[in-house]
Design a protein around this nucleic acid. Structure first.
Length: 312
DNA sequence: GCGTCCAGGTCTACC
DNA sequence: GGTAGACCTGGACGC
């Protein structure tokens, strides 16, 4: 076990003063658990390796402390105040603590199927960058989950900056752009997705493409979706997934090989995509989030989601 | 152990 | 605009 020290507290409260459930946020979607993150579903802790501002990376642990905040621990040697502030800024970004989910909770509170969510569910854990989330989402397309884990793990373990713990951060666009064809084919085994990921990384590394601009709240959903669909390897599923899990845009429904059967099981019959979209239209800008929450409620036992300290 | 088939989402060519 | 097939890998299955 690496030596560790307490770095500080992460408040579990949204921008509107609404509660943030650590367990629900960590279990918000599968991509959140891909390297360089690791989620322990016994203790509801997040271990993640993040790049520092200049060089290197550090591994931090976010653990339940009480309903009001989580405890943040640093693995390995201590860091200066600048790096500490940077790591906290990254964690606040990942937990979307700048987002006010109160408008959604106002809708959910009136809905018998979603009322349970107002205690702090619905907050999607995101990566430090949109680039990371887009690459990970491309790695989820047209493959089994094991393949996604292998591809992302390959990128992280071989191209990401190394922390003193031996763990690696997610690689920079430049590191991915510089990787040879053989790496994508023989190591990460990304298959036909290799050229997509590399082209994307080259565009971002060169400055030709700024994916982080998609965080701009002034951009309408339609434009965000269009810009995502223009990226190599990103189709309707991937665009909806990035909008939901990374960009805080909840209007699009993620319709894929898991959500369609899961919804069919829930309602007892197969339903067309258009019919599903019609049924969730009443949730307006939160249609995608409502759909997602209905399908994933069982991912966290209700007793584990009842309070931050309950999981200890 | 080997070969075959299938699932998975996106892209491209074709109608 | 809609459709078919290719892309690539891992897993399941039969022999």
């Amino acid at each position: 076990m690496p030596t560790s020290s307490v770095l500080g507290e992460l408040p579990l409260v949204g921008a509107g003063g609404e509660p943030v459930l650590l367990s629900r946020t960590l279990a918000s979607h599968g991509v959140a658990s891909l390297p360089p993150s690791r989620i322990d579903e016994e203790t509801w802790t997040l271990e993640v390796t993040l790049p520092l501002l200049r060089t290197g990376a550090r591994t931090v642990l976010v653990a339940p402390e009480c309903d009001a905040h989580a405890r943040v621990e640093l693995h390995g040697p201590s860091v200066g105040e600048g790096s500490r502030a940077h790591l906290f800024a990254e964690l606040r970004h990942m937990f979307r603590l700048d987002e006010d989910l109160s408008p959604f909770y106002s809708v959910a509170r009136e809905d018998e199927q979603l009322g349970w969510a107002v205690t702090g569910a619905g907050r999607m854990l995101r990566s430090p960058t949109v680039f990371e989330d887009v690459v990970k989402t491309i790695c989820t397309t047209n493959t089994a989950w094991g393949g996604t884990v292998r591809m992302v793990g390959g990128l992280v373990d071989h191209l990401g900056a190394k922390a003193p713990t031996g763990a690696h951060a997610f690689p920079t666009p430049g590191a991915i752009a510089d990787a040879p064809d053989e790496f994508f084919r023989d190591v990460a085994r990304t298959g036909y997705r290799g050229p997509y990921i590399r082209t994307l990384a080259m565009s971002v590394a060169s400055g030709q493409l700024d994916l982080e601009q998609l965080n701009d709240p002034e951009l309408p959903d339609e434009e965000v979706e269009q810009r995502l669909l223009e990226l190599p390897g990103v189709g309707p599923y991937a665009a909806a997934h990035v909008m939901l899990t990374s960009l805080g845009r909840y209007s699009r429904l993620v319709l894929d090989s898991w959500t369609r059967p899961a919804y069919a099981k829930l309602v007892g019959r197969k339903t067309s995509d258009k019919a599903i979209e019609r049924r969730f239209r009443r949730y307006g800008d939160f249609a995608g989030l409502a759909f997602w929450l209905l399908l994933t409620r069982g991912w966290v036992p209700d007793d584990a989601a009842s309070g931050g300290s309950a999981a200890i």
